[in-house]
Design a protein around this nucleic acid. Sequence first.
RNA 1: GUCCCCAUCGUCUAGAGGCCUAGGACACCUCCCUUUCACGGAGGCGACCGGGGUUCGAAUCCCCGUGGGGACGCCA
Length: 464
Amino acid sequence: MTVRTRFAPSPTGFLHIGGARTALFSYAFAKKHGGAFILRIEDTDVARSTPEAVQAILDGMAWLGLQHDEGPFYQMQRMETYKKVIQTMLQNGTAYYCYSSREELEALREQQMANKQKPRYDGKWRPEAGKTLPEIPAGVEPVIRFKNPQEGVVAWDDLVKGRIEIANSELDDLIIARADGTPTYNFCVVVDDWEMGITQVIRGDDHVNNTPRQINMLKALGATIPQYAHLSMILGDDGQKLSKRHGAVSVMQYHEEGYLPEAVLNYLARLGWSHGDDEVFSMQQFCEWFDLDHITPSAAQFNTEKLKWLNNHYIKAAHLNVLAQDVQQRLAQLNVRVTAQPSLNDAIALYRDRANTLNELAQSIAYFYQKPVLDAAAAEKHLTADIAPAFERLKVLLQTADWNAEAIHAAINAVVAEFGLKFPKVAMPLRVMLTGNAQSPSIDQVMAILGKEEVLARINAVSL
RNA sequence: GUCCCCAUCGUCUAGAGGCCUAGGACACCUCCCUUUCACGGAGGCGACCGGGGUUCGAAUCCCCGUGGGGACGCCA
């Protein structure tokens, strides 16, 4: 059978890191088996779903390059299908109307909690052979409930967690359609997974408890039961659960902060999945290697430091032109206008090794295009009066030097020799005058890129 | 409270009963490279939650405990 997986987010917020990993694994599983990856938007919660969130999810998926083969399907556009199925269930007795009010149910729940019982529907309106149902109250719009079996167990072999068995006595009759007639999540999922021919449901393990209910409904509909793989959750850097209030960030924020999608993808792939000792691999390699057997069942803590390390790796490996295009925009955001000279590509080539993010890269090379602000501590330490004579001489030599790193290096060396200094005694002040900082790549290379005119201007701007 | 799940270095993980003196990666520390800072290279520190079984042999299997997490919505 052809593999068909799906990613089914609800558009109530941005695509966060946990959702992105779920999507990645679903995508990779489909690719690995030559199957289809389907995107389905679960927007049946009309009150909380927004078109902005839909767009945010689409943007996030696009940035990561997780392209779906089918969809996006929107559940709100499939109402007729759901209603048809509900009618069938009402007719064959696997679903029924329930007139219990919200207040009634709330009171029931509280009472059960007080008695240290698991809160659940009491089955008041559940039709049974020989049972007389209460009189239908006036003015109450009924909900529709699924008539869950009361005996036996539901079991499945979870592809990540192994066999899970839950007694039907633990389950109650869940609502499949609201009083206003709109179907609810658990029901839509069942109908969609069934009709869309999903073969492996790969999702977060907060859905484990929904699985037995869904299986029961699938059985009631005579549908084929897909396989399930429940992924454990991703914790924040601090080990705390990620939530909207705490730590959860959009994948697009990683874009804004200067992470490459390759790095995020590679990092996410290794969060909960492994292929021996392999750490760095391409998306293509991942899709060839991916399997459900090597997914860890336990929760994983996000580690930004490792993400940065990977991002640095991909920055070092990226094509210069691709980096230049991106960095130019980031510089523009910093109000730095990139000019033809100094060469942006050269500046990036010089700095990429030390940048963990593209933002860092942009910031670190901004001084090529705008006068540096001298770091006070560095200036005090290195811009001392005693080197003034050496710099007078250096200016003369630079004036006539061929403008390449070797010649510049030779010029500095000549001054160093002439004044009996050590190389850093000249290099460090130069560093501060030209870049504003005490750290930079080889100063001769920096100078070569900056250009003779600008180098001399910056040296002259400092009075020793 | 009830049900379900989870448990190897600080973090991500390898590990499918002997290959484990528990391997790799990030982080951290030391040294090398060096013109500073990085990059790179070489080392180092550092873990099988506890207790019982099963077995000739257990990080790996079973049970109990402990700890963590999830679910219990007319949310998804």
